[in-house]
Design a binder for these strands. Structure first.
Lengths: 206, 206
DNA sequence: CTTGCCTTTGACCAGTTGGTCAAAATTTTA
DNA sequence: TAAAATTTTGACCAACTGGTCAAAGGCAAG
């Protein structure tokens, strides 16, 4: 049995564990935790249901592992904002990184969205703990830039929400966006629009 | 039996039908269609499960009725944009109306979000039909305003996505927003931020 | 108050759910 | 290659799922 106490992962374990997580991502991101079944995940992974449960204690364990892995990558781009850099380029860079994540990892975005919409029962403490602290730090940096007259006055928290909302929208509401744009690729226009909006927001002299 | 063919709804029917829809909204908006159970809806409505099914043919029928009702209200604010009005005030008014909907009807917003994230299996045709046409009409109006030099150049479709994303974010990601803001009411700052952002976007002279 | 309709319910059903287990199959190790 | 360890599976289970149905309970009009 592959237990937590175990030191080495065999190659079969590594292969199957990542196959299960990949399958779980596909299924959970579409139907949410409660709307997904182990059979769906097993099918997607190409394994039998008991075999799944040989690698993960329970449905919940798969989902939790997925969420934990996701949260690392989720917070990382925020940390890359450099207080010493150029304010506009730093914020623009952050927005572009988030947009790229929506483009390249839409399922991760939807998994996260599902979890939050359903009340964030498993990551509520991360939100009000680690995430909040991180956002508050960035808010201090932004306020510093504002005080120094390097960007326009703006509420830092709501600015961050703006960036999150606009970038994640293209992953989470992908179906709607594509239904409206037709054959046009959403991400073609999205990056330019986002850049325009942020530049005008931060540096306009109306 | 209350059938479609029936002409008059009794008092009791009206009361229970709306109680069921209200309960369905609470449950479905939190767990999505597949993640919700009839027992949950029945409990929330204060009725027995067979009693639910006396008023609605199936779980699907409750959900579909809810979605249909929602879609009316959802498209309405867009229609109120007046081509003859002041461009900035029209777009600002639209954004404020959407933000107010997030504040006053967050569950409706989350129900819609759940449906879209899960691939919009029941309203895909509305999105690529009615909604798309409506958005395209507004896009023509906005392009007219741009051509007349009354607002800055901007991609109309992405501008609309921006407004949707930023306003719905406060309903759909309510838990996250509140976790980060603490005791501060999100909607206090949100409206001001949205107005600032849109005004700078549309009228800045950088 | 009683007849006829509307409403509610308890018992029930077949299919699905997350999860267990011992045994079989396979891979690794010595 | 044989023993030991790991991996896979089929059979199974109790709880839950959406949904049915006949019978009982309530309600309004005559």
């Amino acid at each position: 049995m592959p237990k937590a106490a175990q030191k080495t992962d065999t190659r079969i374990q590594k292969k199957n564990q990542s196959a299960i997580l990949a399958a779980g991502l596909v299924v959970f991101s579409q139907f949410g935790f409660r709307g997904s079944t182990l059979d769906q995940v097993a099918d997607e992974a190409g394994l039998s249901k008991p075999n799944l449960l040989y690698y993960f204690r329970s449905k919940d364990a798969i989902y939790t592992a997925l969420l934990a892995k996701l949260l690392e990558n989720w917070l990382e781009p925020l940390r890359k904002i450099d207080p010493e850099g150029d304010p506009v380029e730093e914020l623009l860079g952050y927005a572009k990184r988030k947009l790229a994540m929506s483009q390249n990892f839409p399922r991760e975005s939807r998994l996260f969205a599902n979890e939050i919409i359903q009340g964030a029962p498993r990551i509520g403490d991360v939100l009000s703990g680690e995430l909040r602290e991180l956002v508050d730090e960035i808010a201090v940096i932004i306020n510093g830039w504002i005080a120094a007259g390097r960007i326009n006055t703006v509420d830092p928290h709501h600015l961050i929400f703006s960036i999150w909302a606009q970038t994640q929208h293209y992953a989470d509401f992908d179906v709607q966006v594509r239904a409206i744009l037709g054959k046009t690729d959403p991400f073609d226009g999205a990056e330019h629009h986002l850049e325009t909006m942020l530049r005008r927001m931060l540096t306009s002299t109306t």
